[in-house]
Computed example of a mutant assay.
Amino acid sequence: MRNWPLPELSITTPRLELRHPSLDDLDELADRAAEGVHEAGFMPFMVPWSDGEPAERARSVLQYQFRTWATFTPDDWSLELAVVHEGQVVGVQGMIGKDFPVTREVETGSWLGRRFQGRGIGTEMRRAVLHLAFAGLGAHHAVTTAFEDNHASLAVTKKLGYREDGISLHARKGEPVITRRFRMPREDWTESPDIKIHRLDRCLPLFGLPMSGVSEA
C-alpha cells in the first residue's frame, strides 16, 4: 500500500517470521485464539479476553487487531505482528510505544497458541521484537510485565536478561494480584546476527522517526 507501508514490514529469525498480519493471517490468528492459549482456571492477561467461548475469542482478536490499525499514530502506537512458524500463524508478538520519539521506550507483550507452547518459540519471537526495537527503531529501553504466577512469561524475560523494575497491584477476577515489571536498557541487549529486519525504512515515519534512506531487501 502506497500510503500505509506497515504490511511490508517483517522480521525473520532462524525459525520464525514476524510480519504485519494480512486479513488471512488474522483469520488464522483468530483460529489460534479459538483453540485456546492457556489452561482453564488461569488468566495471564490483564483484560480477560481469553475467558470467552471459542467464537467470542476469535472475534475479540479480530476486533482488537483492527483497533490497533485504526489508532496507530506516531505518538501512540501498538504494533501487532503475526508470528509464523513452518508456514502456520502460531501467535502474536506486540510492541507498544507512547511518545516514542521522546521516550525511546517500548513495551512488549505476546501470546502463543497453546499447542505451540514449550518449543522455545516464545523466546525467539521476543528476541525478534527486541531486535526491531533496538536495532531498527533505536529504542533506549524495552519494558515488559507479567503476573507473578505467569511462570512461562517470567522464564522468557529472565532468560533474555531483563532487570527487575518493581511491582504493581491489580485486580484480577475480583482478587488482588501482583504484576512484576522488568526493564532492558539498550546496553544490556545482545544483538543477534541471525535476526533480520525487512522493509522498515518506509515505515519509520509512522513511528515518528525519519527515514534512513537505506535500501532494504
Rank of each mutant, 00 (worst) to 15 (best):
T71V: 11
T12C: 07
A34V: 01
P21K: 00
D99Q: 13
G213M: 03
V102S: 12
A34H: 00
G174A: 01
M125C: 05
W49F: 15
Q63K: 12
V37L: 15
N3M: 11
P74V: 05
A155Q: 08
T157F: 08
R2Y: 11
T144K: 05
Y64P: 00
P7R: 00
S78G: 09
R163S: 13
L160E: 04
A30N: 01
R104F: 06
E216P: 05
L112I: 10
A155R: 12
M1P: 12
E80I: 09
A55K: 12
R59M: 11
W49Q: 07
R19A: 13
P7I: 00
R202M: 08
A135I: 06
D76M: 05
F72V: 09
T108E: 06
P21Q: 00
A70C: 09
R67S: 15
L204D: 05
L137M: 06
A146F: 10
D76F: 09
V214R: 13
P54R: 03
R163M: 13
D194E: 12
S10V: 00
Y162L: 09
R199H: 14
G113L: 03
R15S: 10
Q93H: 05
K196P: 04
D27H: 12
M184G: 05
H140N: 15
T145I: 11
V84G: 01
F72N: 03
L206C: 04
P14G: 01
M95H: 04
V129G: 04
L132H: 02
I178F: 14
M125H: 04
R126I: 10
G122N: 09
I96H: 13
A55F: 08
H151G: 07
L26W: 09
W69Q: 13
A133G: 11
T103N: 15
R186C: 09
D27E: 14
L132G: 01
I195N: 00
E187M: 11
F116K: 00
R19E: 06
D76G: 08
R202V: 07
E80A: 11
G161Y: 10
E28S: 15
R172V: 14
L209H: 03
R126L: 10
R199M: 10
F182W: 15
C203R: 01
A70F: 10
R172Y: 07
H85L: 07
G41V: 00
I178L: 13
A142N: 11
T12I: 04
V129D: 04
Q65A: 14
I178M: 12
Q88Y: 05
L206T: 08
S110V: 02
L154S: 10
T12S: 14
R163G: 08
D51I: 02
P205Q: 03
A70Y: 08
M95Q: 09
K196V: 15
L206W: 11
Q65C: 13
K196L: 12
G118F: 08
L204W: 05
E56M: 01
M46K: 08
G166N: 02
